[in-house]
């Protein structure tokens, strides 16, 4: 029939309109008042808009946000053994690690990290350091709001990475 293509097109657009409302229904008042909504998943149908400062997308697990340092959830000690595998793996020399033998001989931690820096400003985000890490200490976080006011702040120290790790889990 002549004109069925037109009707089909109208049907498609109508369905999209209805779909945006259907998906939105459960966050009805908050979303339209622009109040902060917690981190949310991106959906394939319905509204595509994320009202950014108020709404944030949850990033997918493979996302290369920033590096984090993980802790052992039971003991609370950090996993890093200052083995320098990440430092050697880094193609840009962005990571530098210094460690010393733990003076407390009874402790499970043989090595203490005295200095760990990651220069995010020069990082490639290639992930070779994460792959090289033998003790499941270094990993990617899902954060993406990494802008800072001064260039020096781009250099993350060990404490900051540990804190980011706590946020991530």
């Amino acid at each position: 029939m002549v004109g069925t293509g037109l009707l089909k097109g109208l049907w498609v657009t109508l369905r999209h309109v209805v779909e945006t409302y259907r998906q939105d229904w459960h966050k009805f008042p908050r979303r339209y008042r622009r109040e902060p909504v917690a981190v949310q998943e991106q959906s394939l149908t319905g509204l595509f808009t994320v009202q950014y400062p108020e709404e944030r997308l949850r990033m997918f697990p493979r996302f290369h946000g920033h590096l984090i340092q993980k802790r052992d959830p039971e003991t609370g000690l950090y996993n890093c053994t200052a083995c320098k595998a990440c430092e050697r793996a880094c193609p840009h020399g962005v990571i530098s690690v210094e460690g010393e033998r733990n003076p407390d001989r009874e402790s499970k931690k043989k090595m203490l990290v005295t200095r760990f820096t990651w220069d995010a400003g020069r990082c490639l985000y290639c992930g070779l350091c994460v792959e090289a890490c033998p003790s499941d200490a270094l990993d990617w976080g899902q954060g993406y709001e990494l802008a800072v006011d001064r260039r020096e702040e781009l250099v993350f120290d060990f404490e900051r990475l540990l804190k980011l790790g706590e946020h991530a889990t």
């Binding site: 657009t13 999209h16 945006t20 339209y32 595509f48 808009t49």
Partner: peptide
């Protein structure tokens, strides 16, 4: 809405 967007939402409520 047809384009799966929200439309004007910055100036004032909605």
């Amino acid at each position: 809405r047809i384009a799966d967007r929200l439309g004007p939402n910055r100036a004032g409520p909605l």
